[in-house]
Amino acid sequence: MLRHITRTLFKMVVTLFVIVTLVFFATRLSGDPIDYVVGQGITQEDRDLLTRYYGLDASIWEQYVRFLGSFIDGQFGLSFVERRPVAEIVAERIWPSLQLLLSGVSLTILVAVPLGILAAIHRSNWIGSTVMTIAFVGYAVPNFVLAIFMVLVFAFTLNWLPVVGNSTPWHFIMPTITLAGALIAALTRFTRNAMLDVLSQDFMRTARAKGLSEAVVILKHGFSNASITILSVLGLQIAGLAAAGNVVVEAIFAWPGIGDLLVNAAILRDFPVLQFAVLAVAFAVIIVNGLIDIAYAYADPRIRLGRA
């Protein structure tokens, strides 16, 4: 178990380093940020001054080294636009994003896992096929379409729910549903398949032969095994959500999170912020994957204890 954790941690560090490097060079390829900071029509003198001020006159390798150095002081450089330490700007955005992510994932698990189990048990009757049809439709609808539809109905027409920001619990409803929508569809299908695999195993027959009730057979013997595979997929899904899903949802609902920050920083070519925001997302993805990896090992004694 200890070995498993050390190995997971080591992989996380290496992955982060690779991402940091990729992000640095990718942003440098996107154009000159000075244009966006000051706009057109300034003198060449002022331009050179600003270039020096932001350290953009140095060679790209020197900038790379300085960039790596900025991790050490914990400030991660200054924003080109806001002239504040990047760490401060990003820190403000993490919590709202995390809140949205947690509520989205919780909703997904609460809805998708029971639905998937239900669909597996009733695989050959109308209950199963209804669940799977709904899941299929849910999978096919892009999340921005779902979001706009909900905004039209619940905010503009019925006037029930607020659209912009995150100030009250009511603000959470639409972003959370948008975020969870496609995920629920995918995880339901996956849970069903994982459960179907388990239901046909020999040990399920053993459990029934012991006279256990159907609930114990399905949940204790069946789900405990299926949860291992479900966990691995859930990890990937959460990671994808943290990286991409949030960007769309936060942009639509003006949610003051990392995704929103990322979009703005990209438009303004605010390199320090962009780099660090991407890094923060990558870090979240890696942390979640690492945690899932460890949880996976915990759920499966064959990994935890090593093969006999």
Binding site: Q201, D202, F203, R205, T206, A207, R208, A209, K210, G211, L212, K220, H221, S224, N225, I228, A299, D300, P301, R302
Partner: peptide, 20 residues
Amino acid sequence: RGNRISMVFQEPMTSLNPVL
């Protein structure tokens, strides 16, 4: 089942639940 009539199966490798 498992009380008055019980059963032992062929495959001991797969008849027990691996995670319990």
